[in-house]
């Protein structure tokens, strides 16, 4: 009778111990996500696809950039690559006959938004603004020179 009471108590302690520390005995597990394929597309201003352009993909790990793979875009300016397991940041460089562009692709931080750009009409307008300003400065200097001569 006494022995069974002690046994019961010990069992209770054991049950309490296991419920209170459930994780401690488990093995630590890891998980690595993998994106199968990254698709990039590049085009010239005006909308024409950069076909048959050289592509260089650099993997970025701990701030270290290294050439991962090289290739060429297809006729639609598309290029596909399989990322390395565990590396989620890449820099893609696309270049053809002196044209070149690059973009950092980061899966972990989400896709970066293109920085907001002024609409084209506004940029043309701005360009003419600069030109008129420059002409104004030049004319002012010329006028001052003329005044000094008199």
């Amino acid at each position: 009778m006494r022995i069974s009471k002690t046994l019961n108590f010990m069992l209770l302690v054991l049950v309490l111990c296991t419920t209170l520390m459930p994780v401690a005995s488990a093995h630590r597990v890891y998980l690595l996500e993998q994106i199968n394929e990254v698709q990039i597309k590049s085009w010239y201003g005006g909308g024409t696809a950069m076909a048959d352009a050289d592509v260089e993909i650099y993997s970025i790990k701990d701030g270290q950039e290294e050439l991962y793979l090289e290739g060429k875009t297809d006729s639609e300016g598309m290029f596909y690559f399989t990322p390395k397991l565990g590396v989620s940041k890449y820099r893609a460089v696309v270049s053809a006959t002196g044209h070149s562009t690059d973009k950092v692709i980061d899966f972990a931080g989400g896709m970066q938004q293109e920085e907001a750009e002024l609409p084209l009409a506004m940029r043309i307008f701005a360009g003419f603004g600069y030109l008129i300003g420059l002409a104004g400065i030049a004319m002012y200097l010329a006028a001052r020179k003329l005044k000094n001569e008199h």
Binding site: G47, T48, M50, H99, I124
Partner: peptide, 15 residues
């Protein structure tokens, strides 16, 4: 000259 470069003509494989 500044705006002329906006007139693109697509000539495969480039523009």
């Amino acid at each position: 000259f500044f705006v002329a470069s906006l007139i693109h003509i697509p000539v495969p494989p480039t523009s």
